[in-house]
Amino acid sequence: METTDLELVERARGGDDDAFRLLVERHSRGIYRTAYRITSNSADADDVVQETFLRAYRSLHTYDGRASFTTWAHRIAVNCALDLLDSRKRREARHDSSDDLSELVSQDASPERVVLGAQMQRAIAAALQAMSGNERTAFVLRHFEGVPLEEIGAILGIKTNATKNTIFRAVTKLRERLQPFTGSAS
């Protein structure tokens, strides 16, 4: 029978590195996917995976088993990804970046000219870029991962009503950006 995550956590707490390695091997791919959806970048997603497991290792003593290890580790991952987005935003602000991805869409996005597919994906990526870290995370978790609102609120450290409002703001931005494709005003 396969060892459960909880058993591995117990063993890792006792200094068993092999147990922690198993946890890393079991969960790194899933965490990578979530991290990629939030950061939209492979290198950043890799960094988030590393930072997530490092933080998890330091905080193993606080894991009480009430949530599954997957949920707990994903919470850490989302926080790491948000931290990374914040620092990236600060870096970009310092360099006064003018290559806003949203420009890619708005220049030539009349419904007649666009070929749906690749350009639509670019528009979605641009819309995600235009969202704040919390908005993007809440939207990614709800829309792509189907995470319940309460769980998203717990991850972001906000109440359920605030979570709803954050998702609403994200959807509004998305509708604005996709308007040329869908013809639907917000």
Partner: peptide
């Protein structure tokens, strides 16, 4: 609108 927003390919 939202139905067309597929998860970005990872």
């Amino acid at each position: 609108v939202l139905d067309r927003v597929d998860a970005p390919e990872v």
